[in-house]
Design a protein around this nucleic acid. Sequence first.
DNA 1: CACTTACGTAAGTGTCAACTAACTTATTTC
DNA 2: GAAATAAGTTAGTTGACACTTACGTAAGTG
Lengths: 107, 107
Amino acid sequence: MDTALKALAEPRRREILKLVWATELPASLIAASFDDVTRSAISQHLGVLRDAALVVERRDGVHRMYRANRAEMKRVRRFLEEYWDDSLERLRDVAESAHREKGIPNE
Amino acid sequence: MDTALKALAEPRRREILKLVWATELPASLIAASFDDVTRSAISQHLGVLRDAALVVERRDGVHRMYRANRAEMKRVRRFLEEYWDDSLERLRDVAESAHREKGIPNE
DNA sequence: CACTTACGTAAGTGTCAACTAACTTATTTC
DNA sequence: GAAATAAGTTAGTTGACACTTACGTAAGTG
C-alpha cells in the first residue's frame, strides 16, 4: 500500500495513470505524450507503477500494452477514505492515553 | 497540492497526522510516541507538514501545539476524489468498457 | 541570573529516486 | 539472417530526503 501511495505522489506517474485509465496503450505511445523526458524514464515509471500493481501489462507482439489496474486503485481509494474517516475516533484514545502517561502541563 | 501528496506519502508523517487529527498535541508528546527516531527528525517532519499546510501550529508558552488542518485535508481529499472520478467519467465514455471488464484480472 | 525545558535549525551522512545515455533483448519485415 | 522497431535494462549522475548529532533560542523556574 505504501508502494502505491509513493507511486501516486509523483506527478508524472499520475499523468501516466490517467492516460491508461480508460484505454489500453503501448509504452511507445505513453512515452510519446511526454516531450520533456526520455522514453527510458517513462519505461522506468511504468516499472514503478507495475511494481505497485497500479498498472497491468499485456504483451501483444512487439508491443507492451498498459492499462490501469482499477481494482488496485479502488483499494488505494478505500484505504485513504478509511484514513480520513476512521482516524478521528480510532485515535482519540491513543492521544489521550499518551496525554495521561506523559503528564502534559495544563489543559 | 503536490506538496501535500508528497507529505502524505511518508508513513511517519501519516502517523503524526493521525495523532493530531482529533487532539492538539505539543511537539514533545508527538516525538515521544516514536521510539525509533529522534525528536529532531519529528520536528523536521512537523516542518514538512506545516509547509504543506496539513498541520497548524499554535504557540502556548514553551509548547508548540499542533493539530491537523482538516480544511486542507479536505482539499486533498477532494482533489483525489476528482482524480478518481474524472478518470472514471472518461471510462464511461469509452464504449467498449463493458466488455473489457471481463478481461480484468482479480477482484 | 543560572538552569531547565521545549523546541527549531545547521551541518553532515547514507540512501533512494528520477533522469540520461548507452546497451540488450524480443519481434516483425524484407 | 540482417535491419528496423518496441521496449526493458544497466551504469552513472544529480538531487532530494530521512535521519543523526550538535548547537541556538525562547519561555518558565529556582
